[in-house]
Every structure is written in C-alpha cells, then in structure tokens.
Design a protein around this nucleic acid. Structure first.
Lengths: 99, 99
DNA sequence: TGCTTTGTTCGGGTGTTATCGAACAACAGG
DNA sequence: CCTGTTGTTCGATAACACCCGAACAAAGCA
C-alpha cells in the first residue's frame, strides 16, 4: 500500500483537531499512544470492529494528531507531539494530563 | 426569567467541552468573551440569526465553558476561566492563545 | 499458489447537530 | 397598557458523524 498523506502543521485547523479529540474512542487512542509511543491498529482494538477503528485513525491522521507509518502489513501510529505543539502550544499536554 | 442551571466543575466532561469548542461560531464567541470579559447575546450576533446564537450559547453553557447571568432583559455571558482551569489545567489557555 | 494477518473501503442504518424562520415570553420605558 | 428589546422555544430540514458487517487489497509465509 502507498504511504499516507499527512497534513503539514501550517494547515492544522484548531476546530478540526478539537473535533477529532472530542470523541471517547479517539481520546482513548491518543492516550494509549502517549503511553506506548507507537502502536498498530490491531493492538488497539478492544470491542470495536476494525472498520470503526480504521475510521477513527483516519480522522486523527487527517487532523494532524498522529502519523501512520507503514511497515509491511502493519500500520504503525504515533502522536505528532512536536508538530502539534508547534502549532497549538500546550493543547495536547492539557488534554493528556487531565481526567 | 429564572436563572440558568450551570454544571459544577466536577461534572465537566472533557469530550463535551472539546465538542463545544470544536465549532467556529462557538470558538468566535469564546475568543470574544476573552477580550471583553462579559457580553450579552445581541452584541455578539454578526450575520447569524439569534436562534442560532441562542443554541451556541446553550451548548457552551451546558458544557461549563461560560456562565450566563441574567440582568433585566439581558443575558450576560462570561467565561468560567478558573473553574475550567481547575478541572482541565491549561486547556482554555492553549485554545485562546493559538491561531 | 494458497493461507493468514492487517487494514481499508463500501453501503446502509441510525442518531446527532447545525441552521433558520416564526412564534412566544420576560422585562423595561414611556 | 403598549411598544420595543432581548432571548428562548418550536418545528422542519439538511448535513454530518458514528457504527458495523461484508467485501476487498496488500503483504508475508509455507
């Protein structure tokens, strides 16, 4: 599969980022990635079907919150912490630190 | 009119707050309130009809982002900065400081 | 060439949200 | 009272988002 397109920090939109984070499933994904650094889709599937997870990863990817690197058959996801912080300083930290 | 119900900080929900902020019109309202401190609904109406504005204020109020104080026929709105910061430290600052 | 693993894509069903006009309610001032 | 101002509420519509199963694609491996 070809590599994904990822937006550049200059094109990140605050409302898009906030909307991406305003969902419990995606917030779970983000929090989990913060703990483990990098994870593929399958290891994050709890009870949800993979088509749902794929959708959530897409939303997070297109908003700029995470990057997906393809490694063979696996898609490795990680937070774009520095780039997000460059554009919206403190935002991710505030969201990850809270309840 | 009777006073509004406002949620207490302990009941603020991160996803609810983020969803409330993930809308251009509401983000405009929040940014404006940050500049002027307190404002009623009418002074914030640009091109949108008042029924739409009333809806956005309701969403912001019920998420805990702002407080509405009734003064005669006017509804005075102001950000709940301290309470929001108590529950989600740094969140509002990150959103208000960015682009 | 099959078989398995990992994700994506497609289609449909369901629910939520935004938007706006029109009607209504509360209050203040004459 | 009557009128103007300020917002809310109602009803309808349209757009969007979430959810999930099923089919598909790509890669690795026997």
């Amino acid at each position: 599969m070809a590599a994904y397109d990822h937006p550049t920090p200059e094109t990140f939109e605050l409302t898009v980022v906030l909307r991406a984070l305003a969902d419990p499933a995606r917030l779970d994904i983000v929090r989990h990635l913060e703990r483990v650094g990098e994870a593929n889709c399958a290891t994050l599937i709890g009870t949800r079907p993979k088509s749902s997870m794929s959708h959530h990863f897409q939303v997070l990817r297109e908003s700029g919150i995470l990057r997906t690197r393809i490694e063979g058959v696996r898609h490795r996801n990680s937070l774009r912490r520095e780039e997000l912080d460059e554009r919206f300083p403190g935002l991710l930290a505030a969201i990850l630190s809270g309840p």
